[in-house]
C-alpha cells in the first residue's frame, strides 16, 4: 500500500476514531492498558455473545498511532467470531514483530506493516490489540470455570 494512503488512513482514524467512548454496561469485559514508554493509557471493553464480538469500545489518553490503531482494531474485529479474531490477532502481532503473516486477514490494519521499523512505536500500535488478547484470555478462563 502506498505510504501516503497509509498515512491518510491513519490520520483519518486519529481525527475521527470509530467506537470511541465507553458504555456503562456490565455485560462488557474491560481491560486497562498502559504503555510506559509513551503516554498511552487505554481502556478497552468488549461485548461477547454466542462466540461473536458484538461490540468493542475504547477510550483513554494516547498518542496518534495508538488511537488510530484502536479505531482500526474495532472496525476489524467487531462482528467476528472469536476463533477468527484469534487468527487476526496472531497475524497482526506477527506483522508487528516481523514474523510471517497473512495480510489478507488484516484488512485495514495492514497500514501498520512498517511499524516494526520503528521499535519505539510498536507498543503504541499494539496496545489496543494486547487489550483484546487479554480480554480473550479472560473469556476463555470464564468458560473453563
Amino acid at each position: 500500500m502506498d505510504n501516503n494512503l497509509k498515512r491518510s488512513i491513519i490520520l483519518e482514524h486519529y481525527q475521527h476514531p470509530h467506537h470511541r467512548g465507553l458504555v456503562d454496561d456490565k455485560s462488557y469485559i474491560k481491560a486497562n492498558m498502559n504503555n510506559e514508554s509513551c503516554i498511552d493509557e487505554l481502556n478497552v471493553m468488549v461485548k461477547e455473545e454466542d462466540g461473536i464480538l458484538k461490540d468493542i469500545r475504547f477510550d483513554g489518553e494516547a498518542c496518534a498511532l495508538c488511537i488510530s490503531s484502536a479505531s482500526i482494531m474495532t472496525d476489524t474485529l467487531i462482528g467476528k467470531k472469536i476463533e477468527d479474531v484469534e487468527k487476526i490477532l496472531t497475524n497482526f502481532l506477527n506483522m508487528a514483530t516481523e514474523k510471517p503473516y497473512d495480510e489478507k486477514l488484516l484488512e485495514e490494519a495492514i497500514v501498520y506493516n512498517d511499524v516494526s521499523k520503528s521499535p519505539n512505536r510498536e507498543k503504541c500500535v499494539l496496545l489496543s490489540w494486547w487489550a483484546i488478547e487479554k480480554i480473550l484470555n479472560e473469556l476463555k478462563d470464564k468458560k473453563h470455570k
Binding site: 498515512r7 491513519i10 490520520l11 486519529y14 481525527q15 498518542c63 496518534a64 498511532l65 520503528s118 519505539n120 512505536r121
Partner: peptide, 17 residues
C-alpha cells in the same frame, strides 16, 4: 482544533521517524 490534531499527527510522525 482539527488542524491542531493534524499538526500533532505530523509532529509525532516527524519526531519519531
Amino acid at each position: 482544533f482539527e488542524e491542531l490534531r493534524t499538526f500533532y499527527f505530523e509532529l509525532d510522525e516527524t519526531v519519531y521517524s
